[in-house]
Design a protein around this nucleic acid. Structure first.
Lengths: 336, 336
DNA sequence: GTGAAAGCGCTAACAC
DNA sequence: GTGTTAGCGCTTTCAC
């Protein structure tokens, strides 16, 4: 694959047309005033020579790259894949591009990635399921000098811009549904304590208990990383301990997949012996061994709204309210 | 979020240090010769002022952005999510970034995306499940003037660089397994005829039949888009027609999910009444109602190898062989 | 060991 | 309506 001859520049067109680069630039950008005769001629030449504006040069001049950094925990997780898609397509609508970085939930990887993005002069930053949500990370993020928005997982500083679903309400709705349909003792396989989403889902869980006068028992609540394996192990241990299990609310579908696995392995029936449900409605929740009751997060919309909010901050000085709480939707399937 | 004060430039550091920008540049890049005293001083100042090199300026000078375009059909599909992850992380290892674009399997969207990427001066292009695989698309791709590599879905021109799994062999292995374990009549719910992967999987399917002296019956082969819905509809129609179905090989797991749905809905048992299997081993194949026998594609490795090949072409003039065929692995689960 | 000058490709300000 | 100039931030000669 030989490197093709040098790219065509404005200067090449100018020479060809016997004009200045300025004139050509004006024509191609429909700015300033040029004779319609010139316009036609220049456009034709540009077309013929296969001219492509060099946005790197433009970026240098404008001090703006029309590029947004999107840092995600793991692009192979289908949940984040949808968020990425929503963000990328919405950005494209406005002529923006997305540079993607995976962090694997590692703080250092994430910081390094952000630093590189900043050197590439991204105009703004989206942090999806970021690890940099603590107070201690604020100085780093502020030092970036560009707008940034948290997605999916909220930062500890409630002033920070955020787009995601309302976890308190979502968890409340789910537990309320479980209670109303006969459950009294609800095990909760929640995500890590450190995660804000997990804290909020616990709040919703507790609130629903209070609301229906069911005493809250913290011994029913477990915390784990959102991995299939972890859900499996936790559920298995609970069952092997001989504990009476009636209903299991999983903090996310991934944990739910593992938990379901453990339940079925024990020869128990879903939902006859144990009712189980999750949160997120990942792509395959409907196609698990038992189609999964879950809260459907508006995944692509999260990406879309995040871009809208970010572009607003990039383009305007004044601030719109910075927290967008989208509603999740209860999807009832056979697992409950 | 007030736009922070202008970013620190080499000039700022130079002024502060009482040196020229040249000197500072040399220090910060460990090039040319500078006194160790100067080096230390400059580095300290840069550190203190929070200097971040402006890669846009460097790109303009170097005529190289250390950025790669990755065009995918749909980043929310878990298969491509893994490919993206592999590619992004491998690129990062070499200081490259990935700009991601979704095409939604639309030729025009894809072309438009590529054009924008080119204006941003990407150094190379990765096309994952591209629509631009026909002979007719070659001139467009060649006009880009940068190396490009097809991923996952191969282009019609066999000279084009490609990284993916060996579909002929994969399909052969699967069908061979089915035959050896007792299947004689194997329905094949393949993907669109237009797709190269689909053609190759059909070749493998036929080859295995020949190899085991089972007559090939084209009436058992169906083609459809890789959507759950399509697999469901196709399978349902076959069953409603009262056709005797013994074994179903699905061209991809997504189709398989739909087909399985239709089979179970009919009250048929898997694998007792019908054996069914797929291809790809998407994230959730193991957690379907019946864990799915499938061919595991080396998804992340595809991304990794593609970057390796692309960087090689970006950095060197001479060509390495341009086709990387990775082996897929048979994963036997309960559905067969 | 250090610096002045030129240039990457583009555009905005300002002549003419 | 068109051209000249300067400058975005960086690096690379080539002097000194």
């Amino acid at each position: 694959m030989k490197r093709l001859d040098r790219k065509i520049t404005l200067r090449d067109i100018a020479t060809e047309a016997g004009l200045s680069t300025t004139a050509v630039s004006k024509v191609l950008n429909d700015k300033g005033s040029t004779s319609s005769e010139t316009q036609e001629r220049v456009k034709k030449i540009a077309e013929r020579m296969g001219y492509r504006p060099n946005l790197v040069a433009k970026s240098l001049k404008d001090n703006c790259t029309k590029t947004i950094g999107l840092v995600v925990a793991d692009s192979s997780h289908s949940f984040l894949g949808s968020v990425i898609k929503g963000a990328q397509e919405e950005a494209a609508r406005f002529g923006y591009n997305i540079i993607l970085a995976n962090t694997n939930r590692n703080r250092e990887t994430e910081k390094k990635a952000i630093n590189l993005l900043l050197e590439k002069r991204i105009d703004g930053l989206l942090l999806a399921s970021s690890m940099l949500i603590q107070k201690i990370d604020k100085p780093f993020l502020e030092s970036l000098g560009i707008p940034y928005i948290f997605l999916v997982r909220r930062s500890e500083d409630k002033e920070d811009a955020f787009v995601g679903n309302d976890n308190i309400r979502g968890a409340f709705d789910m537990v309320e549904y479980l209670i109303k349909t006969g459950s009294k003792k609800i095990h909760f396989l929640n995500m890590d304590k450190s995660s804000t989403s997990s804290k909020d889902r616990l709040k919703g869980y507790i609130k629903a208990h209070e609301n229906y006068h069911i005493p809250y028992d913290s011994r029913l609540v477990y915390n784990m990383r959102p991995e299939i394996e972890e859900g499996y192990t936790a559920m298995r241990e609970i069952l092997e301990r001989g504990e009476k299990v009636e209903t299991v609310f999983c903090g996310c579908d991934i944990i739910g997949i593992g938990a379901m696995e453990a339940i079925l392995e024990k020869g128990l029936k879903i939902p006859e012996d144990i009712r189980i449900c999750g949160y997120d409605d990942i792509e395959f929740a409907a196609y698990l061994r038992k189609p999964f009751t879950t809260m459907r997060q508006p995944k692509e919309i999260i990406g879309v709204k995040a871009i809208d909010l970010l572009l607003d901050r990039i383009q305007n000085v004044q601030e719109k309210p910075g927290v967008v709480m989208l509603k999740s939707e209860l999807v009832v399937r056979q697992s409950t």
